[in-house]
Simulated scan of single mutants.
Amino acid sequence: MFCVVYLLRFRGCWLSRTQILEGNAFKGFLDFRRVEPEARHRFGPRAMVAKLLDPRRLEHSLTHDLHWARVVQIKEGGIMVEGKELLFKGAKSSAIECLQTWWCIVDHETGYAALERMRAPGVTTGFHPNDD
């Protein structure tokens, strides 16, 4: 499904609403499926992976893949997907798992308006998945 994705975290820490809105939005195809069979020994037999694919080259991801992904909520023109990014410091280093949350806007008018409204009282980041 084609959508616009905003990253809500950086290296596991929530971004503020202004950082999210001023940051780059990625436009691509959201691919949400089980992990490939050859990688199930690492991630688990029922693990899911979310990818944002480049519309021009569908074999290329626009962002880091979300491993152990899950859909947190579907509302107001968007889908909130949460998982872990695997970041590497070098060629031989082991992966660092960082929490990441995507706000995937499917309906542009209502999804972007929801992104601008989202803030949790008492939270300085300005964005929280439990905010209604």
Rank of each mutant, 00 (worst) to 15 (best):
V72A: 07
L86A: 15
K89A: 11
K89D: 13
F43A: 06
F10K: 09
G122Y: 06
E82N: 01
G126M: 10
P129H: 15
F2R: 15
H67S: 02
F43Y: 15
L99C: 01
R46K: 15
G78C: 12
E109C: 05
A114T: 06
M48C: 06
L62A: 10
S93V: 03
L66T: 00
W14G: 05
E116W: 09
S16C: 11
G12A: 08
I20S: 04
K27I: 02
W68N: 04
I20D: 03
N24C: 08
R33D: 02
A39R: 15
L62N: 06
S94Y: 12
W102G: 01
W103H: 13
L8D: 03
D107Y: 12
L87W: 14
T124Q: 12
C3W: 09
E97W: 06
G126F: 12
L52R: 06
Y112G: 00
P129I: 10
A25T: 07
H108E: 05
P129Y: 15
D131Q: 14
K75M: 03
H60P: 00
V5I: 14
G111D: 01
S93P: 01
L58V: 09
C104D: 00
S94N: 14
F127S: 07
D132N: 14
I79Y: 03
A69T: 00
D132C: 12
V49S: 01
A39S: 14
A95I: 02
A114K: 07
C98Y: 02
C13K: 15
T101F: 09
A114G: 08
K75Y: 04
L30S: 02
I105A: 01
P45C: 05
T101Y: 11
R117I: 04
Q19D: 15
E116K: 14
Y6M: 07
T125N: 13
L87D: 10
V5E: 05
E116S: 08
L21A: 05
Y112R: 06
P55M: 08
V49R: 00
R70L: 03
H108M: 09
C13E: 14
F32T: 01
P129C: 13
E36F: 08
H128Y: 15
H60S: 04
K75H: 10
G44W: 07
P129K: 13
C13I: 12
V49M: 03
E82S: 03
W68C: 04
I96Y: 11
G90A: 14
K84M: 13
V71S: 02
R57F: 13
L53A: 11
P37H: 10
H64V: 02
V4N: 07
L115H: 06
Y6V: 03
L21E: 08
L21H: 02
L58W: 05
D54M: 12
F88Q: 13
A47M: 08
H41A: 15
M118P: 00
R56E: 11
D132I: 11
G77Y: 10
N24A: 12
I79R: 09
I20N: 03
R56T: 08
